[in-house]
Design a protein around this nucleic acid. Structure first.
Lengths: 336, 336
DNA sequence: CACACCAAGTAAATCGATTTACAATCGTCT
DNA sequence: AGACGATTGTAAATCGATTTACTTGGTGTG
């Protein structure tokens, strides 16, 4: 029934209202009552009446604790990260903590900027999904709070990481296509340069290994580099591929979203999936069950990844621990 | 060349290293040098050598400023929010500020919890996308920082809001279907109860108005309430609708994601879109261009919404201002 | 009776910055 | 010469909590 406070209510206000010291109030409100039950009740009542909420900034400055974990991702609208974030948030919530998400932008410079961004120190721990940043970059920053790297990219260094098994996942996907009769498999969003060590490169490596392992000739022109990881890139590249008259009977897309672009391009060209062209994506996002046809995809087990990340955060001082979460293939209608 | 600091470097450390007072260091590092150029340089060098970064928590406690704006959304994996967040982040970045995202959960209780969650006070301003919370709920919290409500729901109250024009958007969509010959339009994810005032209800209202305005009989059984706003809900409901032998020649889905579920169900049933059944979604997410067939959708102009929100934040004390952003219909292949 | 001990509470230090109010030095103008 | 105003800087207060180190007064024990 009290009107909302015009100005912020501080601990001192509550203490004054209850006729006790700030220490008493702080103790009671944090569940460590060093006072009598009646006094505790009086304090609680006063706090409620005044509409008191502890200032989290002051609390953190003194005690060091936030109940927030930061999650830095390249882009806010990529379904993979949205789904992963949901798992992280779910699990954190069970611990009474909160997930807070920020965008880096995805380029090396932007990731560095994000990492330097002092705001990150406001979290108990930070999970960073890095694409372009390199180990020396990060180490020079001297992070003082727990930092877990979420990789699609192996980065030996001073920070623990969780990786998905990009190479094996890609291997299994391409192997699946090859055993289903595909002979000319496009790697949509692959990488030709062997020196880089990012997600794109790892998945391309799986693509190569599958070919050599199964004794299938590898056609270098079918490895298509893309400008981005959006559906648009997949659509444009596939359309171009068809226009150029390339022969292919399967597409392994670096990402489900890219695969969706490819599916759309194939439909426009009147090619039937999987009859004329088989398609596999990567990430196993929710949309895979609703595309026409439903999209076969490599499942990175986001929930496992989330669990692994939180485990690494929970245990202090486990630098350079690397957990690799295995993938499985989720076969749907877009492959035979 | 210096090794990263083992422990946190404070302002006092820099001051000691440079042989000056903390005030001098603070001044120089914040661009308000009250010292000579040579001293300033000495301070900057010391800061760089020690790897000093200001503690944002302490800074905020004293100065009140963060450079972060909070954005509270119901779910982290909904494309609409991901895209809107991207626009907000882009625009904020141009102002040198950052967007920070948190999840509420979507229910009234969870939204209240999120709003009470003291962490929100760590931002300069908060943008909240509310679904279930009511005005009295929020006012009782006595927010002390700028709060903009992002609505799909009109909530007259003490806080400024940005709404999309749900009713007109739905009206135009249904009108479009009716003028293209549809006679039995399913409202997928509608609401029967007229008392609630949420997004679902507003869009259903547009559906009704379109029918009466165009003199088309409205079939109450075609308004289908859904348990959720995911693709699964749309899929299940549409499948059920077909199994039950209902006649319909169009679907207006409350959300693009729901529409995608419907598209999938129609494909499973062997119904052709738009020939047998026309489909329209709402939100105009990026996926609309890549579904088969491409999905006609109501475009809420997320970029405009973002601009409006940031305008409201920029101007202090504009309580109870309400900006309604108009929608347009984006016609694609799923309608005739 | 004296000693230890517990319960109930408080005053003051602290976290790391920003900001205010003031001091010292020097050159310049009248 | 004395006053004035820059210039260059510093000491201390402050933000709002948590936490440590101490008071009290009463109570059980040997």
């Amino acid at each position: 029934m009290k009107p909302p406070p015009r100005t912020t209510v501080t601990l001192a206000d509550v203490a004054a209202a209850a006729g006790v010291s700030k220490a008493a109030v702080s103790g009671v409100l944090n569940g460590k009552p060093r006072v009598s039950a009646t006094t505790a009740q009086r304090i609680k009542d006063a706090a409620k009446n005044l509409g008191y909420h502890a200032n989290p900034t002051a609390r953190q400055l003194r005690s060091g604790r936030t109940d927030a974990v930061g999650f830095v991702i390249p882009e806010l609208h990529r379904p993979y990260f949205g789904e992963l974030a949901t798992h992280l948030a779910n699990q954190l919530e069970q611990q009474g903590r909160h997930l807070v998400i920020q965008r880096s932008g995805g380029s090396r410079e932007q990731e560095l900027a994000a990492a330097q961004f002092a705001q990150l120190r406001r979290y108990d721990a930070v999970i960073m999904s890095v694409l372009g940043v390199d180990p020396p970059d990060l180490e020079s920053l001297g992070f003082t709070i727990p930092l877990v790297l979420l990789g699609e990219k192996s980065m030996p260094g001073a920070h623990p990481q969780v990786l998905m098994d990009n190479e094996t996942g890609a291997f299994e996907a391409v192997k699946h296509l090859l055993t289903r009769g595909a002979q000319h498999i496009v790697m949509l969003g692959g990488s030709h340069s062997p020196d880089r060590n990012d997600m794109t490169r790892r998945r391309t490596q799986g693509y190569r290994t599958a070919h050599t392992t199964l004794g299938q000739p590898l056609i270098e022109e079918l490895i298509i580099e893309l400008g981005g990881v959006g559906a648009e890139s997949g659509y444009t590249a596939t359309t171009q591929l068809i226009a150029d008259g390339h022969t292919f009977d399967a597409i392994f897309a670096v990402t489900d979203v890219v695969a969706m672009g490819a599916l759309r391009a194939l439909a426009d060209a009147g090619l039937r999936v999987p009859h004329d062209v088989q398609v596999i994506g990567f990430d196993d996002i929710a949309d895979c069950n609703y595309t026409v046809p439903r999209l076969t995809s490599v499942n990175p087990h986001k929930e496992h990844i989330a669990t692994a990340v939180l485990d690494l955060i929970a245990v202090p001082n486990n630098d350079n621990r690397v957990i690799t979460v295995p993938t499985t293939l989720n076969v749907r209608e877009s492959t035979l």
